[in-house]
């Protein structure tokens, strides 16, 4: 079926991969809505606007006669302003839903996050979609993503609109601005020899192309018969690995191998982190080492993606190893260019 696609956040990291995937497969009607414009393709219509302004998004959907919306827009995780999260993730999503319903859009796919089920301290062991939202979310980002997801799923069926939500975990890829820079920072600080925990906690990651592919599949397969409408799906690379293994593999791409490894039990990490947090509270500086970080590196955080496999037909296109290689390549190239 020929759709008129709208990718909200189509200039962002995941959104751009979706746009390119749609172009590649020969879609002729693609529109992008974003707050900035970074890409200028002649085959794509671009709307620059603010999601928190209903008229901006409504006009775009109406004018372009959109039938399928993929909503990927969200401020970055580490954004400071709580207000911005509420404005974009919740109010913005409300506007998207209203505009879809008022203009007779048939399909809405929402980029949620695996963290909507994370309370900040519990282990996530092979978690599937039966897991409830936590009573108290870890932070505003997670809370607002969950609120947005709920709104989207509740809108399923209204005026013929079908919706679903994808919950990717640990998206990374070439030129990402969160995962790979984080790994590289540890390397540049010379901290790769420290290991907190015993490295027996498994963690999931998602290569960005797989994440984009899941979105395209979700639009294609969104229907009542497929049992995809009104549903949420965890999306990962399907291969959880011990936390420090991916770190060390990424460092290895830069020919960096820790000369030796100092292992700290996680309890020791918590003590140090508590002091660091106390010190930063006194000095008023941002703590570099927090209890959250200790938890982040020592707990299990992986998902059962069989629902996506069975109902969306999702199977990762790029495996974790190849994905990590591709993700590092632009950084390696830029290091090499600097040397020249």
């Amino acid at each position: 079926m020929v759709e008129n696609y709208l990718i909200i956040g189509g200039d962002g990291f995941v959104g751009r991969w979706i746009v390119e995937m749609l172009i590649k497969r020969g879609e002729t009607s693609i529109t992008v809505f974003d707050i900035v414009q970074r890409y200028f393709d002649k085959e794509i219509k671009h709307y620059q606007g603010d999601l928190s302004n209903y008229d901006d998004i409504n006009e775009c959907i109406k004018k372009e006669n959109i039938t399928a919306v993929i909503h990927t827009a969200s401020p970055p995780h580490d954004g400071k302003s709580e207000e911005l999260f509420w404005k974009v993730n919740v109010e913005g999503t409300k506007n998207v839903i209203e505009a879809c319903i008022n203009n007779g859009v048939k399909k809405l796919v929402y980029t949620s996050s695996s963290s909507v089920v994370y309370d900040g301290y519990s282990e996530l062991i092979n978690t599937d979609e039966t897991a409830p939202y936590p009573e108290k979310h870890m932070n505003v980002y997670n809370e607002t993503k969950a609120a947005g997801e709920k709104l989207v799923l509740e809108a399923n069926g209204r005026n013929g609109l079908l919706t679903c939500a994808l919950r990717p975990c640990g998206i990374f890829g070439p030129n990402d601005r969160q995962a790979i820079p984080g790994f590289i920072k540890v390397m540049e600080l010379g901290q790769t020899k420290y290991q907190i925990g015993n490295n027996e906690n498994f963690v999931d990651w998602t290569y960005v192309e797989n994440c984009a592919y899941a979105h395209v599949l979700a639009v294609d397969k969104l229907s009542v018969e497929n049992q995809t409408a009104g549903e949420a799906f965890f999306i990962t690379n399907g291969t959880p690995v011990p936390f420090w293994d991916l770190c060390r593999f990424i460092w290895a791409q830069f020919n960096h191998y820790p000369p030796y490894i100092l292992k700290f039990p996680s309890s020791f990490g918590f003590i140090i982190a508590s002091f660091a947090e106390l010190a930063s509270f006194v000095t008023g500086k941002e703590p570099g080492f927090t209890r959250f970080r200790v938890r982040f590196t020592t707990t299990n955080r992986y998902f059962n993606i069989n629902k996506a496999r069975n109902r969306l037909g999702y199977e990762p296109l790029v495996d974790l190893e190849e994905g990590a290689r591709r993700a590092c390549q632009p950084v390696i190239d830029s290091f090499n260019n600097q040397r020249k």
Binding site: P242, N304, E321
Partner: peptide, 24 residues
């Protein structure tokens, strides 16, 4: 396992699959 091994990541993934099999 160690990151100098050419199969480092693949071995890590194979071990993860065992863990996930058990939990599933």
């Amino acid at each position: 396992n160690d990151s100098k091994d050419p199969n480092f990541m693949k071995i890590s993934m194979a071990c993860g699959k065992v863990e996930q099999w058990c939990q599933t």
